[in-house]
Design a binder for these strands. Structure first.
Lengths: 234, 234
DNA sequence: GCCAGCAACATTGTATACAACGCCGCCAAT
DNA sequence: ATTGGCGGCGTTGTATACAATGTTGCTGGC
């Protein structure tokens, strides 16, 4: 993607991940024009991409909305994610280059720093991005085109829950430590260790998600899903 | 996708799957206008979608080409595909409805008919489509949004090899029989059986692919990949 | 003769204008 | 009061014109 489309993609994605747009909200193309500063054409392209990443729903002739995943759908997603990222970690252990290892180390250090600063100045968005960088780095190190295509579809949707917003410093430190374990497994080329460490890491994340009933977002309650009006006279 | 975009998508996809466009060939947007009968806008949309399905490569500011998968990349793809479709079959066994079973049965019957007619009038394209319908039906019966998103990225690329073109009637019949086994497992709700039957089915397909060295397509030989000229004066 | 720089062109990327679609609310007929 | 059709409007879908980009082949200096 190039320039304007990229700009639109990032702006919309940021708007959703930061919570400016809530699940179910309509994403009207002309409104996004003012938000992104580009015309409708690249915005449409960005929306299609976000759709394929599970962050946006598009209904033909009816427009885009922020995707609303049910609890069950999220559970299924984590199942898929566990397998795919487990595979990725295993492959990465066999195929990674020095360059990959450096990139992974960098993302973990960033996250460690953010974790230490957490009580003073928590930056949830930066944490989410560093986390994305780590998981994306594993995927890249795996050097499998198919795996990249498939995994990308399930890696971003969980970010919509803004999990990190409810993390404690301790949980963050744990997460960093798990990342370090995975990197170590990959760096010594132990595919099996890498796979199970990653699997465990993701399962932990999911568990943290569902074991906090107070945080269960509104959109998980399907009955309350707001059906927004559109068109007509105000 | 709607109307024109859909039309463009199908036309381009058909052009690639039928062999009119070979891996590595450039897909110039204005040329596709005459092929599809729609303007560039929906064509661009179709190309992006085909990219996400692994059938087309898009380089920014440089255009689209028919994707060329290396032997290794294909092996990786089948690995991913095996896991995802295995999962899908397992889930389908637990979640399928009567309607799903009917649709699956229909696709298998179509394929069986095509297999019987094979020696008289082999219709490779129809076979490929019936096969796609079967695998897509399993995915739908699994009712997992994430699985659908992820699996769709790896299901179509193998069609580019036009495997069925080299199938014998016997192999086709075998394939049909495997499909029937999978349906039976799903219909009685045996998730484990469904999973392993599907896994085995796909692995067989891959084996059939790589054990025929004579068929190894030109694009697997990376050194020979033609770098087409573009622009300039003829 | 060879390489760097330049200019023209093919092609993609973006903006915008126009067409098509579907929803909503009103109104009339039952 | 309910329901069916109808018109208007918001929004998406498509076409096309224009801008930007990169590649190609030429040209001039060394």
């Amino acid at each position: 993607m190039s320039d304007a489309a990229q700009k639109a993609y990032q702006a919309i994605r940021h708007g959703i991940l930061s919570g400016d747009y809530a699940p179910g909200d309509r994403l009207v193309e002309v409104d996004l024009v003012t938000l992104c500063g580009v015309s409708r054409t690249p915005i449409r392209e960005a929306l299609r991409r976000l759709q394929s990443e599970g962050i946006v729903d598009i209904a033909p002739n009816s427009g885009a909305t922020v995707a609303a995943w049910s609890k069950q759908e999220f559970a299924d997603l984590y199942d898929v994610r566990t397998r795919l990222e487990g595979m990725a970690a295993g492959l990465a252990a066999e195929r990674r280059t020095e360059h990959d290892l450096n990139a992974l180390a960098a993302s973990v250090e960033t996250m460690a720093m953010l974790a230490e600063r957490y009580d003073a100045a928590p930056d949830h968005v930066a944490i989410a991005f560093a986390n994305s960088a780590f998981h994306g780095g594993i995927l890249e190190a795996a050097r499998s085109r198919a795996l990249s295509l498939a995994a990308r579809q399930v890696m971003d949707a969980p970010l919509m829950l803004r999990t990190f917003r409810q993390y404690s410093q301790e949980k963050l430190r744990n997460s960093v430590s798990q990342h370090q374990e995975i990197i170590e497994a990959i760096s010594i080329g132990d595919a099996d260790w890498a796979r199970v460490a990653m699997t465990s890491h993701i399962k932990r994340g999911f568990r943290a998600l569902v074991s906090r009933p107070v945080v269960v977002p509104a959109q998980w309650d399907q009955s309350k899903t707001k059906t927004q009006k559109r068109g007509g006279i105000p």
